[in-house]
Design a binder for these strands. Sequence first.
RNA 1: GUGGGUGUAGUUCAGUGGUUAGAGCGCCAGAUUGUGGCUCUGGAAGUCGUGGGUUCAACUCCCAUCACCCACCCCA
Length: 423
Amino acid sequence: MHIQSPKGTRDMLPKDSFLWQWIEQTMREEAALAGYLEIRTPVFEYTELFERGVGDTTDIVQKEMYTFLDKGERSITLKPEGTAGAVRALIENKLYAEPLPVKMYYLNNPIFRYENPQHGRLREHHQFGMECFGVKGPSADAEVIMTVLRILSQLGLTHLSVKINSIGCPVCRPSYHEALRAHLKEHFEGLCPQCKERYDRNPLRVLDCKEKSCQAIAKEAPNILDYLCEECDSHFDGLQQLLHVREVPITIDPQIVRGLDYYTKTVFEIIMQSPRGEMALCGGGRYDGLVKEIGGPDMPAVGFGIGTERIILELQNQGIVPPTQAVTSVFIACLGEEGRLPAYQLCMDLRDAGIRADYDHMNRSLKAQFRYADKLGAPFMVIAGGDELQRGMFKLKDMQSGEEKEIPMQEAVNRISLIVNQK
RNA sequence: GUGGGUGUAGUUCAGUGGUUAGAGCGCCAGAUUGUGGCUCUGGAAGUCGUGGGUUCAACUCCCAUCACCCACCCCA
């Protein structure tokens, strides 16, 4: 038996916890500012939910899902994206009957896709996402985009580009499909084999094919924005205005269509420029038909997902380091056996007082305890033992200045708390 | 799923057919016994990814396999 995590998975190690918790805290704060409440849904769902929700022509459903039969012969799938589960929960718990809009976020949901790992791509990754249900107009689209941008800027990230597009609705999409197919038919022999298949099932996907020949054809393709119905057109205009008045630099990119079938009208991506090229950090859009498709009321919705591992990559690209706090504020060293109990007592009292305190578990020499405390980065040390102990005193040392002073044992907790909190 | 590269102490890496496989950093300990960072000294630590094969002899050559990195595809 090999001791290793499954392919494409990573451990979040203790040394990384500051980074993850800082990101999580930022996400929570920004979601709360916008009036979104957290939802947690199961890591797995019935497979059918994703087949119907995400769409069975998508790569995700066709080849990337972790699907298996459980012992009751039910087909189970590990979440390959965050939205379907949230929509299922909305319907099942009748959240749509609450005052609208219903606004929720999920924090670092594990997401599973069976793909070959590479830079920025794992088999298990984590997404933060927001979903807003019940709003027809572009104000909700703007709200979720503004919130994710706030998260990114609170984290210190800059130079990210926001791309938006509209892919229409069931009213206008058929006429666009017709026009697109007509164009593709003229250049059919130039399409890659995959796009030849897409021609029938989902011609929109040809637009963001990475094959050069297909890209050339896509570039000449009719622009979906020219085929939007009046409602979609004014929705798209409205969103642009709401972003414009907040001075959000956006690029309209007719090439972005998103890999999930449920999107309507607005789709958007936030792109990072890694040394190796661009990569989507965040993707989302409007999915007005999904709630009904899954069995709920006819309810419009908009949301996005953003990958935490990719945020971390971008933080590293931009050299951003999270604020850190010393693991331990006070290390209580003991000198000799008679110092052990007083050190333990003081440590527990300090913890009761809300001070990060630690003491020796390793029976180390005083010197070694100092070395250890130094490695922890503890700004203060207390020495319990020796003649001070006999006189009812602890010795407190400021590790930066080297200054030492004696403190009566009875006053130790209060005095030390005060000094630590001042620093 | 396809293609390329890599796999040797905790870690970064030397070592390409021949004794008990090395170094830096890290870890542990010590430097006249009550004090960290710097320095010095010592120590622990490796089934050489795994399984086969070739050979008198394999970390070294061959095959397979697994994982990691990278690219395609797709995406967060």
